[in-house]
Design a protein around this nucleic acid. Structure first.
Lengths: 115, 115
DNA sequence: CCCGGCTATCGTCGATTGACGATGGAAAAT
DNA sequence: ATTTTCCATCGTCAATCGACGATAGCCGGG
């Protein structure tokens, strides 16, 4: 039995859970969608999201250990995901814990579902 | 009233509607997902999919007219989408009609939903 | 048969991506 | 205080992308 709840992240500040009122289509939505697609369009970044899904949160070093890539490369991929709003990072001393931004992921799924 | 049905394409041969038995996760799914994400990760290609969604099918020239891009560029984008299996093209004389591959799109949505 | 419209492909060029090692900086450990 | 650990950033290089014009191929109409 796990002591985590489905709607909580265990490493980052609580999320904004207000509903997303933005439209699912139109020029802005197209741009937004393309941007998120681009951020995810790399096997390593898909894997990172998968890892965070399983672990619920994860420090950077663990991801580096799992992926067959140099530390700097992983850091670069994390940056791409973070800038797209898909993940969030929380500094904890010398470590950095990353977790999914569930709100952004919901938005992404909604945009894809609208295709 | 339209004479088209939601589950039919009006330009391409009938689709294979058998359920997709492939897994939604794992290394192969990651690669497959990253490939589809990459194919869609461009504003012009998102727009093309949107156009095909609205029109149900569309000849190449119409897409060229709508997008602010050269004909050769649009053709290139169509090729990317086609190679990823997201759209299908049917030659009709001197024209080529494109339509969505709903089966592939369903697969894509399922993969994204599994993130 | 040649011509004109429609589409795909080729070649090119600048911009972006993705990989790496090296370096830097901040906090923890000694 | 020094060293160690962890992570981000920088610089570089090859590879890929995305845009375009030019060109080739194909089919239908005249």
């Amino acid at each position: 039995m796990e002591n985590r709840k489905a709607n909580e992240n265990n490493c980052c500040p609580p999320e904004d859970n207000r509903p997303d009122l933005r439209s699912i289509e139109g020029p802005e939505a197209d741009e937004e969608l393309a941007q998120m697609l681009k951020a995810l369009a790399h096997p390593a970044r898909v894997q990172i999201v998968r890892i965070l899904t399983r672990r619920d949160s994860c420090i950077c070093g663990e991801i580096v250990d799992v992926l067959p890539l140099a530390q700097s490369t992983v850091s670069q991929h994390l940056k791409v995901l973070k800038e797209a709003g898909i993940i969030r990072g929380e500094v904890d001393g010398t470590r950095v814990g990353y977790c999914l931004n569930q709100r952004a992921l919901r938005r992404f799924r909604a945009l894809v579902a609208g295709l």
